[in-house]
């Protein structure tokens, strides 16, 4: 029997990408995507269920569909996307409800993958250059997204401890870069001059978006259990990232940097959240050996990911946005999925 997978955050970039990847997998029978908004990518057989942001509907879905695998890709790791209140609802309350439903009596869930972020490690001068999965952060978390993710990981740890029969993989992803994803880093790199903190040239480790999707797929497929860092090989200075992007740096003062970024934000130039500012000052590296030892191989190095991103930027500057013009239409999607007239198994 094939797997029955629930993807949270179907309308987010990661949910959509993951659902597309799962659709191509013949071993997956059922894909159910949950989100507050409609999917933004074309999906062939994924069933979309609209939910509220903290998933109160979830236990009913798990019970009704006999889900055996959950891919939790809904965690917000970019605090510029929404208010901290919404982020708290989605991250902390959402995860709490999700895991409560997954651990309810009679639950069929046996595999869970949670996409978290390296923000849980923070960034400070006292850090080891390479964080291992067992390391705790050096300074206490001050930014909202870090605190929110730490709370989430607390629930995840409790769930894993209470449900030893479930393989739970907690993936801590490094800062992601790639052709299709918009993050503060990609936005910064497309500005005419790239902000940097004067006097600092931190070494960063990035990861290509495809490698993140591949890592989640890998975790689900191999039913990994435990914490895994997901970060490309190579740690390169921010100046070199800018050089690959062909951009010059705009030095921000090393003191009162937060004030300067606030001005940049107010002017609508760029929103550099405090957790990213720390990384742009002190850098951060993740020890990625554990996932590699499990058998995963990364396609892109850090420099390669930046290069791939810049190639996409150059293409876009020539041909414009690669907008597929896809819009989710309930009736059309329902027709394709459920009408007896549709030849299922044949791609349209």
């Amino acid at each position: 029997m094939g797997r029955r997978i629930l993807v949270t955050g179907l309308a987010t970039y990661w949910g959509g990408r993951l659902a597309q990847a799962l659709e191509a997998d013949p071993d997956v029978d059922v894909i159910i995507g949950l989100d507050t908004r409609r999917p933004t990518v074309a999906l062939e057989r994924t069933e979309y269920v609209r939910s509220d942001e903290n998933y109160s509907i979830l236990s009913r879905i798990v019970r009704a569909t006999g889900i055996d695998t959950i891919a939790h890709t809904f965690l917000v790791v970019d605090s510029t996307q929404m208010s901290s209140r919404t982020m708290h609802e989605i991250n902390v309350i959402g995860t709490m409800n999700l895991l409560a439903a997954a651990s309810a009596a009679g639950s069929t869930v046996r595999t869970v993958a949670v996409k978290s972020s390296a923000h849980v490690y923070g960034s400070s001068p006292k850090d080891p250059y390479w964080f291992r999965e067992t390391d705790r952060r050096v300074n206490s978390a001050r930014t909202k997204v870090e605190r929110s993710l730490l709370e989430v990981e607390g629930y995840v740890r409790d769930f894993a401890r209470d449900n030893p029969h479930v393989s739970l993989a907690l993936l801590r992803c490094s800062n992601v870069i790639g052709p299709d994803l918009a993050t503060p880093i990609t936005k910064a790199l497309t500005l005419p001059v790239v902000p940097k903190v004067a006097g600092f040239d931190p070494r960063l480790q990035l990861i290509h978006e495809d490698d993140v999707v591949a890592a989640i797929m890998f975790a689900l497929e191999h039913r990994l259990a435990g914490i895994y860092n997901v970060a490309a090989d190579g740690m390169i200075p921010w100046s070199e990232v800018c050089a690959i992007a062909g951009r010059h740096g705009l030095p921000l003062p090393p003191v009162a940097t937060a004030l300067t970024t606030e001005i940049l934000r107010r002017l609508g130039i760029i929103d550099l959240p405090p957790e990213l500012l720390q990384v742009l000052t002190y850098g951060r590296g993740l020890d990625n050996r554990r996932l590699k030892e499990a058998g995963f191989s990364y396609r892109y190095t850090t420099a390669g990911a930046v290069e791939a991103f810049m190639e996409a930027v150059r293409l876009r500057s020539t041909i414009g946005d690669r907008d597929t013009g896809y819009r989710y239409e309930d009736d059309v999607e329902q027709f394709f999925r459920h009408s007896p007239s549709v030849n299922r198994g044949v791609r349209p």
């Binding site: 997998d25 070494r203 190579g234 390169i236 200075p237 050089a243 396609r299 892109y300 290069e307 044949v346």
Partner: peptide, 22 residues
């Protein structure tokens, strides 16, 4: 109905420009 052939996950080259080590 074959799934699209996934790109072989062989690692790509590392286009470093500087010599700053890890």
């Amino acid at each position: 109905n074959l799934p699209p052939v996934a790109a072989a996950p062989e690692p790509l080259a590392d286009p470093r420009t500087g010599d700053v080590d890890e």
